Amino acid sequence: MMALDHLAVAATRLEDGVAYVEDTLGVKMAPGGKHARYGTHNMLLGLGDIYLEVIAPDPDAAPFEGPRWFGLDQFVGAPRLANWICRVDDLSWAPPVCGPPMTLQRGDLSWQITVPADGGLPFGGALPTLMRWGAGVPHPTTTLPDSGCRLRRFRVFHPDAADIAVTPDPRVHVTAGPAGFQAVFDRPDGPVRLS
């Protein structure tokens, strides 16, 4: 089973990514936390059955080994959608290009997530990162404040669209074209687009 878990907006500075999301969607994000293993920090937004994450390098991170995940060492430019993460029941079948599963923990949360050795994003992020939440771990959507926004459609564009694994989620569409992402969210006052 593969299911859409969350979307990730990358930024060079967390405050810039948060401002982009809050200004675009008109809602406030909730505190996330730090990922000491990869020298990053994040903030989160509840979207009902999924959530949105803004992730960026943590300037206060202690020294760590290896590259940052989510391609953040190579990320430049304005904050933007850069990755999508799908949860699965079993990571043993994950394609080698996704990288080996890494086990992480923060507070009450524990999970395994695929991270390539170079920290990059396969197919430039068009191939989803795969993860499995730890047994008995409550999904972040159960503790996040509800923003009132809901994902209507998430489009993944890539020249090799036929090679991209697709979740059965009807909101996700993988389309041939120049690499990029586009998400449409429903708000009480109408739809809004994030890319």
Rank of each mutant, 00 (worst) to 15 (best):
L44Y: 03
Y38G: 03
Q182H: 04
G71Y: 00
K28D: 15
S195A: 11
P31S: 14
G148H: 00
V184D: 13
A179I: 07
M1Y: 03
T167E: 13
C149E: 15
D186K: 00
V174I: 11
P122Y: 13
D108C: 10
A94P: 11
A56R: 01
V156P: 04
Q182R: 08
F75A: 07
I113H: 00
G148S: 05
R187Y: 07
G120A: 08
L91G: 15
T141P: 00
G177S: 01
L121V: 10
Y38V: 03
P63L: 10
C98F: 09
T114N: 00
D169Y: 02
V76R: 15
P96H: 04
R193P: 12
D5W: 02
V184W: 01
Y38K: 00
R171S: 14
D118H: 00
L47H: 05
S110V: 12
S195K: 07
A3H: 09
F181D: 05
A3I: 08
G180F: 07
N42A: 11
L52H: 02
F75M: 08
D23A: 12
G46C: 12
P170K: 00
M2A: 13
F157V: 09
G136A: 02
C98P: 04
V21G: 07
A62F: 05
P63A: 15
A176Q: 11
Q74A: 15
V184H: 03
G66W: 13
A61D: 09
W84C: 06
A82T: 10
T167W: 04
G120P: 00
D73Y: 03
V27A: 14
P178M: 10
T142V: 11
